[in-house]
C-alpha cells in the first residue's frame, strides 16, 4: 500500500476510529492519542495491509485492542459488572444533565466496555453483526445477545427516568 492508498483507505477511517476509542476510553484526549498511535503502527505495517480483506473491520479491531491495552496499562479498568444496578443521578449530576441526550450519554457510558463497544459499532457506525463479531472476537450470536442486553439496560433507564418525571408532574 503506497502513501496515496494509505491516505484514501486508512486515514478516511479516522473519525470512526476516534469515536470507537472515545467510547472505550471515555476520554477525548486519550482517544486522540490512541488514534495517533494506531496510525503510526499501521503506517509502519502499510506494506502488509494490502493482504487485509476487510480493512475497516481490521482497523477497528486494532483500535479496540489498543484501547484495551491502554486501559490495562493505566489500571483504569473500573468496569461495571454486566448485571449492575444503576443508581439514579445525584442532584449534582442531575443539574449537569441539562438535556435528555446527555442523560443517554451517561447511561451508555456506564455500560460494560463490551456492550458499550457493540452498541457504538451497531447504532452509531451502522456495522453488520458479522463485522462486530470479527472485531470483538465473539460469535454473531454473542454479539446479538450483548447488543440486546445493552439496549434493554438503556431502555430500562429511559423508562425509569420517564416514570420519575411523570410522578413529579402529578405530585406538583
Amino acid at each position: 500500500m503506497n502513501s496515496h492508498q494509505y491516505k484514501s483507505q486508512v486515514l478516511t477511517l479516522s473519525d470512526k476510529l476516534f469515536r470507537l476509542a472515545k467510547s472505550i476510553l471515555r476520554h477525548e484526549e486519550e482517544a486522540h492519542d490512541a488514534v495517533q498511535e494506531l496510525n503510526l503502527k499501521l503506517w509502519e505495517k502499510r506494506q502488509s495491509l494490502d493482504a487485509v480483506e476487510n480493512l475497516q473491520a481490521f482497523t477497528m479491531q486494532s483500535m479496540r485492542n489498543l484501547c484495551l491495552d491502554l486501559l490495562r496499562k493505566s489500571k483504569n479498568i473500573i468496569e461495571m459488572p454486566s448485571e449492575i444496578e444503576y443508581d439514579a443521578p445525584n442532584p449534582y449530576q442531575q443539574t449537569e444533565l441539562n438535556d435528555t441526550v446527555n442523560i443517554i450519554r451517561v447511561y451508555i457510558s456506564k455500560l460494560p466496555e463490551l456492550q458499550r463497544t457493540i452498541i457504538q459499532m451497531r447504532d452509531v457506525e451502522g456495522m453488520e453483526i458479522s463485522e462486530i463479531a470479527f472485531i470483538t472476537s465473539l460469535t454473531e450470536n454473542a454479539v446479538s445477545v450483548n447488543l440486546s442486553r445493552a439496549r434493554q439496560k438503556v431502555r430500562e433507564q429511559i423508562q425509569n427516568e420517564h416514570q420519575k418525571i411523570r410522578t413529579k408532574i402529578w405530585t406538583n
Binding site: S3, Y6, L11, S14, D15, L17, F18, R19, K22, H32, V35, Q36, N39, L40, W43, E44, V101, Q120, V124, E125
Partner: peptide, 15 residues
C-alpha cells in the same frame, strides 16, 4: 449526534 463527532487533530505519519 455521535455520528457527527469528528477526529479534529491532524494525523501525521512517520514520513
Amino acid at each position: 449526534e455521535e455520528k457527527s463527532v469528528k477526529y479534529s487533530k491532524k494525523i501525521q505519519n512517520k514520513s
